[in-house]
């Protein structure tokens, strides 16, 4: 439906104003991260008189920022690789195979999407300790993969849009099924792969409870855990805290700004196809 240009502009301006009010909390953290503790305590609303960078040096040091960042990147990258490869394989086959067995597995695999982590966290954490894989980014990733039903749904749904003839004919050729999958079907899943990759990087990057339970070594902490720990340590020291909140969020926000087009289409595609 077309509206006149005038209405468009007014509505647009109003909505942008609304969006700015909406983002006020983020603005707030940003300005306060440049203020001394006393200034935050006395006037949390005012714009910083001068840009006070001490908070950032303190936060950078206290959060061991580069190491933490590296941990996050490792966990996220491994998770995405695992999720994409394993769930696309499973999702593809479960979608193609119409047998009862296939249906049974599909239903079985939906459970992690619904059942929250804390209902089995105690035995899970014990298991991880038994394997001696605590404090390792890869073990975190393995657990994320084990519960990535959501990705499986997406692939399951997406595969339906790929003509069966494509893989059927090749199957007749006697081509190995998995090679066939990776050479022919996998590239066709690109849109779904990018949605899955984007969603899981957001979720993995920001996840709290699992790393909170599994990572006990400071050197293995991810950013959210670091922030949480720092809050415990610095209490209401809002100067260091605000700076570390900004630091912790910076990488993902930058990534979002660069990749936002893909993120948006990824989520949208995920919702519609899923």
């Amino acid at each position: 439906m077309r509206r006149s240009r005038g209405i468009q502009m007014t509505a647009g301006t109003l909505l942008i104003l609304l969006a700015l009010v909406y983002l006020f909390p983020i603005y707030l953290i940003l300005i306060n991260s440049f203020k001394s503790f006393r200034d935050i305590f006395e006037s949390p609303l005012s714009f910083p008189a001068s840009f006070y960078l001490d908070n950032y040096t303190k936060a950078w040091k206290a959060s061991d920022f580069l190491q933490t960042l590296l941990n996050n990147v490792t966990v996220t990258a491994l998770t995405i690789a695992g999720v994409v490869v394993f769930t696309s394989m499973a999702g593809y086959k479960l979608s193609r195979d119409k047998s009862k067995l296939s249906w049974f597995f599909y239903i079985l695999f939906t459970f992690p999407f619904l059942i929250p982590l804390y209902s089995y966290m105690i035995p899970l954490v014990q298991l991880v300790k038994q394997f001696h894989i605590e404090n390792s980014p890869a073990s975190l990733s393995l657990i994320y993969v084990s519960t990535s039903s959501f990705a499986l749904f997406m692939f399951h749904g997406f595969v339906k849009s790929i003509p069966v003839e494509l893989d059927e004919s090749a199957y007749m050729d006697g081509c190995s099924q998995i090679r066939l999958f990776f050479s022919i079907v996998f590239p066709l899943l690109k849109p779904a792969i990018s949605s899955v990759a984007i969603l899981f990087s957001l979720w993995t990057w920001n996840d709290f409870l699992l790393p909170f339970l599994i990572l006990t070594d400071k050197d293995a902490f991810t950013i959210t855990i670091k922030v949480f720990q720092m809050f415990g340590m610095y209490g209401s020291e809002w100067d260091v805290i605000t700076a570390s909140l900004v630091l912790a969020s910076m990488p993902i926000v930058i990534l979002y700004v660069i990749l936002q087009k893909y993120i948006v289409s990824g989520i949208a595609a995920g919702a519609i196809k899923g």
Binding site: M1, Q8, A11, G12, L202, N206, S249, Q260
Partner: peptide, 25 residues
């Protein structure tokens, strides 16, 4: 969508921004 389609991308970007933060933050 029907009020200000020309700003759609900008608005979507702004309103989605909180979601990229961690809930801890």
């Amino acid at each position: 969508e029907w009020g200000s389609r020309s700003f759609r991308n900008l608005l979507r970007t702004l309103f989605f921004l909180p979601y990229v933060f961690s809930l801890v933050v």
